[in-house]
Amino acid sequence: MEPINAWLVDELARLSRLSLPEEERRAMTAQLKRIVDYMDILGRLDTAGIEPLSHEAPVGNVLRPDVVEPSLDRGELLANAPAQDGEMFLTPRSVE
């Protein structure tokens, strides 16, 4: 498997929409490498036949009835937006 390297960290940053200037990228690469190397001790744990545990879920299905309740006031919804026109959120060109 690909070890943590600068190229991979760039790729992760791109997927995460983060940009790392050269120096930060070098430090981050070193730190992530140490962390991931440490995590490799998990490889020593025998997990053959163990079901992954993603939820400590309540017993029984948790569903809500199909009932409409009032929505949020639009003014309140838009109040925190950095750019909006009173009706919609604004972004730079996002559609073709």
């Binding site: 943590i4 790729e11 981050m28 992530l32 962390i35 991931v36 998990l42 992954p52 545990l53």
Partner: peptide
């Protein structure tokens, strides 16, 4: 940022099974 990058790493294709899936198994253990 460090955690976001780490989390993106363990979920990305090629690493999911070795890290994320394995961690969920360790959690069960």
């Amino acid at each position: 940022k460090r955690r976001i990058l780490l989390g993106t790493f363990v979920l990305s294709s090629g690493y999911y099974d070795a890290y994320y899936q394995k961690a969920l198994q360790a959690r069960a253990v």
